[in-house]
Lab assay of single mutants.
Amino acid sequence: TIDDAFRAIERAIQAENEGRYREALKHFLDGGEMIVTAAEKEASQKVRNLLLHKGKEVLEWAEHLAEWILE
């Protein structure tokens, strides 16, 4: 659900702030994927587009974090 997705993102932010970057990455990926999944089930085109945009933002952040971890 969207609530689960945002809880995962909150955990990711907390982990990132505490320097637990790999854990943060996992939570960002989980949250982003949950948002995209919820968007695919959404009946309203406007809400679907907003959710897809937010999911994409979260997944892009996860990608940047992963690249930073690997440096």
Rank of each mutant, 00 (worst) to 15 (best):
I2V: 09
I2W: 07
I2S: 04
I2F: 05
I2G: 03
I2H: 04
D3M: 14
D3H: 12
A5P: 02
F6S: 03
F6Q: 04
R7K: 11
R7P: 01
R7S: 06
R7Q: 08
A8Q: 08
A8M: 15
A8P: 00
I9Q: 00
I9G: 00
I9C: 06
E10R: 15
E10W: 14
E10M: 14
E10K: 12
E10T: 11
E10V: 11
R11F: 09
R11A: 07
R11Q: 10
A12G: 15
A12V: 03
A12C: 11
I13C: 13
I13L: 07
Q14M: 07
Q14V: 10
Q14G: 04
A15R: 02
A15L: 14
A15T: 02
E16V: 15
E16R: 12
N17R: 14
N17Y: 09
E18S: 07
E18G: 06
G19I: 03
G19T: 05
G19E: 01
R20H: 07
R20Q: 04
R20N: 08
Y21C: 09
R22F: 09
R22A: 09
R22Q: 11
E23L: 04
E23G: 02
A24N: 01
A24I: 07
A24W: 05
A24G: 01
A24T: 02
K26F: 08
K26Y: 08
L29A: 03
L29H: 05
L29P: 01
L29Q: 08
L29Y: 08
D30E: 14
D30R: 14
G31M: 06
E33M: 14
M34G: 05
M34R: 06
I35F: 15
V36T: 07
V36R: 12
V36L: 15
T37L: 13
T37V: 13
T37S: 12
A38Y: 08
A38P: 02
A39N: 03
A39I: 09
E40W: 15
K41P: 02
K41N: 12
E42I: 14
E42K: 04
E42A: 12
A43V: 12
A43H: 12
S44V: 08
S44M: 10
Q45M: 11
Q45E: 14
K46G: 07
K46M: 11
V47R: 09
R48K: 09
R48A: 03
R48I: 05
R48V: 04
N49C: 14
N49G: 06
L50V: 06
L50P: 01
L50Q: 08
L51F: 04
L51P: 00
L52C: 14
L52Q: 03
L52W: 06
H53W: 12
K54G: 03
K54H: 06
K54W: 15
G55H: 12
G55W: 14
G55Q: 05
G55A: 15
G55F: 14
K56F: 07
K56G: 03
K56D: 02
K56M: 10
E57L: 14
E57V: 12
V58M: 06
V58N: 00
V58G: 00
V58L: 11
V58K: 00
L59W: 06
L59T: 03
L59P: 00
E60N: 07
E60Q: 11
E60V: 05
W61N: 02
A62D: 00
A62E: 00
A62V: 07
E63W: 14
H64C: 12
L65R: 00
L65Y: 03
L65F: 05
L65G: 00
L65H: 00
A66V: 05
A66T: 05
A66S: 06
A66M: 06
W68M: 07
W68A: 06
W68C: 07
I69Q: 01
L70N: 11
L70V: 11
L70T: 09
L70P: 02
E71A: 14
E71R: 10
E71K: 12
